[in-house]
Design a protein around this nucleic acid. Sequence first.
DNA 1: TATCTGCTATTCATTCTTGAATGACCGGCG
DNA 2: CGCCGGTCATTCAAGAATGAATAGCAGATA
Lengths: 300, 300
Amino acid sequence: MTGGDLWTLYRTGLAVLTEGSLSGAGRLLGLSQPTVGRQVEALEAQLGRGRLFTRSQRGLLPTETMLAMRPHLETMASAAAAAARAGSGGSEELAGVVRITASEIVGGEVLPGLLASLRSAHRGLVFELSLSNRTEDMLRRDADIAVRMVQPAQKALVSRHIGKVALDLYAHESYARQYGLPQSVADLAGHALIGFDRATPFLNAAAQGLALDRNLFALRLDNDLAALAAVRAGFGIGPVQRPIAARDPALVKVLPGAVAFELEFWVVMHEDLKRTRRMRAVYDGLVEGLTRHVGQGKRG
Amino acid sequence: MTGGDLWTLYRTGLAVLTEGSLSGAGRLLGLSQPTVGRQVEALEAQLGRGRLFTRSQRGLLPTETMLAMRPHLETMASAAAAAARAGSGGSEELAGVVRITASEIVGGEVLPGLLASLRSAHRGLVFELSLSNRTEDMLRRDADIAVRMVQPAQKALVSRHIGKVALDLYAHESYARQYGLPQSVADLAGHALIGFDRATPFLNAAAQGLALDRNLFALRLDNDLAALAAVRAGFGIGPVQRPIAARDPALVKVLPGAVAFELEFWVVMHEDLKRTRRMRAVYDGLVEGLTRHVGQGKRG
DNA sequence: TATCTGCTATTCATTCTTGAATGACCGGCG
DNA sequence: CGCCGGTCATTCAAGAATGAATAGCAGATA
């Protein structure tokens, strides 16, 4: 009978829940299948509410009780990962892992340069990037620092408003040569528009300034970086952040001034991390670098 | 060398941090002191950043790195406790532990009656009460349900606005007989006022309606229930929530209408718990009972 | 100064957990 | 139909973590 160490049992319970089988959880945790099985039994015994999983030959299906525990166990896992990052580097030295979440565009186009210079200044820094357009839960510590498009509501977070970045429609000059450029918003209907498959901050912002029908787009992507690549490749016309477009002289602005939407930029960090030197350094570096980046859009 | 189960090591690390010694942590966890010592060593080895504690003959002092990990480990602990509560009762049955946080006054004067009727309806319910005036962190799952005086800002929480409760000054009739009652706000200076030692929601609210000097009070308490008891015992004049005063005919209102401040009532629960039946039942029960309670103040 | 209490570090026998191997079961596929 | 890949359950030997006991140290107390 496995003893009273509930935290271990929670960890394997969560692994079984996410993997769906004892064997899978074992592979994930580096344990054997019998061990995982015993620990699940032990967890069930500890809680005393009967089975947490319904066993089948094709895996384990969670019971209602287990599902009720799930969010808490996920919180534990996030906190454990955060603790590992916090402990991986001394808080004195400027070394260790920093996990950053940002949108795909920012992570692919803006951050690499910034992080490179941060790392050249502080060799011990190691970065993890989590790129997605949904805003991850900073309070659950899925990331240490976030670059956001919306102001954070929670007050356990320290945040810095960087500024606004304008989005304009751009096309590659090769496209412009071949097809010409629209002269009015109505002209857009005859062109190859590149848009987004599902709701994104871009689309939300765009919908305010312009009545954009999803069916208008000749290419719909759920990947912002690929969409940007499509614009650069001359496929068609799509929205690009002005500072990013400014770096590529082959990109020409389409209908300048006719469509204008803006994105806010925020850098967000959990209050607890303020005193950890490397977190602070990265935070400050991001604030400075993004401020510079946003500024480049002004004259672009 | 203790193996790779980090979660266990985190748990004992946190215990050592809070207890300040290996022996103390051992007592807390039900482990022996050598075991705790070995696990701390193992944790230090895993993180690879040198010692997490500076050993001394009088205990272990956390190092900066350990302090950086602390908030994450506490989050883990809170989540573990929440998971235990979630798993302690099936989510189907109306049984299991529900942890509620509220102010001292609400917990001492209002909740007992409400919880009693809830429990008579559902025998399997077990309640934990955490009474304090600081608002605990619901996002860290220190409690399942909170009765609050302020609107929650986080959107991961479901909340229900109950209404306002008026605070008035009251005195026991025995006090009134002996000393008489003030006829004006200026008269208050000559009376025995019961107030609060440190800033509380009451004092904050009071400070807005009336210029109250802390030095005016003849009895300062950091315990709201004791303050209420002092009013009931005839020590002097103090603020009492109207619905609570209404239940005791021996309490007489002082300077009716002259001083009037109000408290908001909110019931708050984490989004994740919405579908757990017993949480939902307690939440609904609290909403209903508190609404009734607040209503009693209206005609009081 | 001597004593007492609390702490950490170390040792060693014990206990407990673990993993490899095996058997059994189910579903998909040739 | 029979085989294969996947799963869980069970057994048993090996290994690892554990606890009791001991020694040593520092500070408080008389």
